[in-house]
Amino acid sequence: MDLQGKVAIVTGGASGLGQATVEAYVAKGAKVAIFDMNEERGNALVEQLGADNAAFFNVNVADEASAQAAVAGVVEKFGAVHICNNFAGIASAAKTLGKDGPFPMGEFTKVINVNLIGTFNVSRLAAEQMAKNEPVNDDGSRGVIINTASIAAFEGQMGQLAYSASKGGVVGMTLPMARDLAAFGIRVNTIAPGLIHTPLFEALPEKAYAALCEAPLYPKRLGRPEEIAKVAVSLVENDYINGEVVRVDAGIRMQPR
C-alpha cells in the first residue's frame, strides 16, 4: 500500500516509537491521527507537522467509548482509515510472588487492559472503517494493521510477568486476526522490538546503560525509534507480508534477569 494520501491511526503516537512512526508516515505523504493521553506532547507534534497532516485525539485505548469516539473523529476529519499502528502500552515490575506478597491483581489487570485489550479495541474499530474503503490497488487492499509486541513476549525476564503476558497475547492475536480480516483486504502484522532507546532509558546510570548496549549481538547499541518506524513503513508498503511477527532486536536473546 502506498502511504501517499492514506490515513493512519497511531496509538501512543505522541512520543517514542509512536512519534517516530507518525513522523515517518507524514514524510511519506500520509495523514496521521495521534491517539495518546499526553495532550501537551500530542498538540506540540501536530503543530510541528501541520494541522493538515496530523490531528491529536485524547484517547484511553482500553476504553470502548473513548476509542469509538476517536475513530469516528478521524473519519470525520480525514474521511477514512487505511492504517492502524498500536504502540500505546505500559510496563510493570512485579514477580508472581515477591517479598511483599503475590503480584497485585489490580496492577496485572491494568497492564493487560492497556497493552492487550487496548490493542484489540482500537484494531477492531479501525478494521470496521477499513472495510468500508474502496480497494487501493490490484490486490484489493483496504487496510493495514500493525500491532506492537516485544521480545518480552518470548523471553520475558523476572518481574516482567504482566508485560510479557500482555505482549504474548498480542503475538497470539496476529495470525487469527489476519485470517479474520483477509476477506476484507486487510493485512495484520506485529513488530516485536528489542531494546529501543526511548526517554525511559535516559534516566539510567551510565554503567547500567552501557551494560544494556552490550546485550545485542550486533550492533552493540540500543535501537533507535526511527528504526522501528522504518519497519512500520515497510510493512505498510509490502503487500506480501501478512500474519507475521517481526523481531527488531539486533539478535538479542534476553536472560532471566
Rank of each mutant, 00 (worst) to 15 (best):
L49M: 12
V32K: 00
A33W: 02
A69I: 04
N38I: 13
N43C: 05
Q19S: 13
A67H: 04
A24T: 05
A70P: 02
D52P: 08
G18V: 15
A70K: 02
G42L: 00
G73F: 12
E47S: 15
Y25S: 09
A72S: 10
L17M: 15
A54C: 06
D52H: 14
G42Y: 00
G42E: 00
Q48S: 13
F57P: 00
I34Q: 09
E40C: 08
A24F: 14
R41S: 11
N43S: 09
G29E: 12
K28D: 10
E23F: 10
E47Y: 05
V75P: 04
A24K: 13
A33L: 07
K77H: 03
A20Y: 01
A24H: 06
L17T: 03
E40P: 04
V71T: 06
D52I: 10
A67Y: 02
E76A: 11
V75R: 09
S66V: 07
L17S: 11
N38V: 14
A55I: 10
E39T: 14
V46K: 03
L49V: 06
N58R: 08
A44M: 08
A44P: 01
G29K: 08
D63Y: 11
R41Y: 05
V74P: 00
N38A: 13
F56G: 01
G73W: 09
K77L: 03
E40M: 03
Q68C: 04
A54V: 00
A44Q: 12
S66N: 07
L17C: 12
G18Q: 15
E64N: 13
A30L: 03
R41F: 08
A51Y: 04
F57G: 00
A20E: 03
E39Y: 14
L49S: 04
A55P: 00
D63V: 14
G29T: 02
E76K: 10
K28A: 15
D52S: 15
K77F: 02
L45M: 09
D63F: 10
V74A: 10
A51N: 12
N53F: 02
T21D: 09
A62G: 07
F56S: 02
A30E: 11
A55V: 10
V46N: 08
G18E: 15
F56D: 01
N60E: 06
A62Y: 04
A27S: 14
N60K: 07
G50S: 07
A70E: 04
A27Y: 10
E39F: 15
V74H: 01
N60Y: 08
D63L: 14
